[in-house]
Simulated scan of single mutants.
Amino acid sequence: MLSKKSEQFLNSVRMELMKRGKKDEDIEAVTEELRDHLTQAEKRGESVDSITGGSPEAYINSISKEMPFDNSFIKTIIGALFAILGFFTIPRLIAGQFDMSVERIIFYGLLVVILLPIEFWLLMTMLKKYDHSKKGYFAPLIIALIGFAIILAGEFYLRANEGASIINLDIHMSLWIGLILLLLFIGFCVMYKSWFYIGVMVYLVLPDLVARLFTDKPADSKEFVNISSSIFLMLSVVALVGAMAFYSRFKKSRR
């Protein structure tokens, strides 16, 4: 078993190389080799400094320069951006409330170009710093909540100050376009085995889809909101129970 300091250093190396877009197999090979070196060093009574020369950042930089950049990393980022755009648009289309103003387009653009990269950077930095400590578990949750709060605040601001719509679809046209895009989205995710994105999309779309199938009322009507909220609550309970079970199993596997 490695010391806590060595494990934290290994995690820092892994996270930093991921952030720099290196291939997963190369990262695993490097970290496994580094683990062996650290294990042997600790048996000799030496510390991480004997491997890094006292400068972990310089050591990581030297490793990174020797490793090729993973071109698929760019494809992953682009795919993630398209997925997020789908999360913003497809649920609104299915709910029948797809109206786009210039302000809303600018807001969504800022979320994709600025907020998401900042959240990704913060997430990688926190995981690298705190590893598997309690702070390491809570950091992603806090970052996600901050991002959600910013999005929610932006939505409320838009509702109060949004200008005239430049795209406005009736309920039935909006639903059919949303369903077509949903099928295309799921098809691409299956093709690239992106099951997580499918799960997120189902979680976002299913409440409004069920509500739309049961009523032709507008998305802000009491009937539509009641059906959608009930389905959303049930899905949230299932997701919470699943997350707790996964966390419990993960903790047992770490013992």
Rank of each mutant, 00 (worst) to 15 (best):
I143S: 05
I84R: 09
I63N: 00
R35N: 14
I150H: 02
L111G: 12
F98S: 05
K128T: 05
K43E: 14
G45L: 03
S64D: 15
A80W: 13
D26W: 01
V102Q: 08
G136M: 03
E25K: 14
L115V: 12
S55F: 06
E119A: 13
I106E: 07
T31S: 03
L110C: 01
G21K: 01
I94N: 10
D36W: 00
Y108C: 08
I60E: 11
S72M: 14
F98M: 11
K65V: 15
L122K: 03
D99T: 15
I78K: 07
K135N: 10
Q40M: 11
S64F: 03
A41L: 14
L81K: 12
I27K: 00
G109A: 00
R44V: 04
P56H: 00
K135C: 03
I118W: 02
I27M: 02
I142G: 13
F98P: 04
E33A: 14
F138E: 00
S47L: 08
A58R: 02
F73E: 12
T39Q: 09
T39M: 11
M100D: 01
I142L: 12
E32D: 14
I118M: 03
R92V: 15
V113T: 11
G109L: 00
K19T: 01
I105Q: 05
G96N: 01
M100L: 15
E66F: 00
V48F: 06
L38A: 07
Q97I: 15
R104M: 13
D24Q: 14
A58C: 02
G54F: 00
P117C: 04
Y137F: 15
G136D: 06
M126E: 06
I151G: 08
L127G: 03
G136V: 09
L127Q: 12
D131E: 12
D26K: 03
Q40R: 13
D26A: 04
E119W: 06
I78A: 06
M126W: 09
M124P: 08
K135W: 11
T89C: 13
T76A: 15
M126L: 12
K75T: 08
G45K: 01
I151F: 03
D70I: 11
A29W: 05
I114G: 01
I63D: 05
L123K: 10
V113M: 08
L123P: 07
I150A: 00
M67R: 07
I106A: 05
L34G: 00
I146H: 07
F87E: 04
I142E: 06
S62H: 13
M100G: 10
I94R: 04
N61W: 10
F88R: 04
I118E: 06
M18L: 15
L116M: 11
V30D: 09
A80I: 10
H132S: 15
G53T: 02
R20H: 02
G136H: 08
F120W: 14
I51R: 06
R20Y: 02
D26Q: 03
S50D: 00
A95V: 02
W121D: 06
E103D: 07
F120L: 09
I118T: 08
I74H: 04
G136L: 05
F88G: 07
S72L: 14
I77M: 08
D49Q: 07
T76H: 14
I94P: 09
A80D: 15
S101T: 10
K128I: 09
E25A: 12
I143K: 01
A139W: 00
S101Q: 11
L123S: 12
A58T: 01
L122E: 03
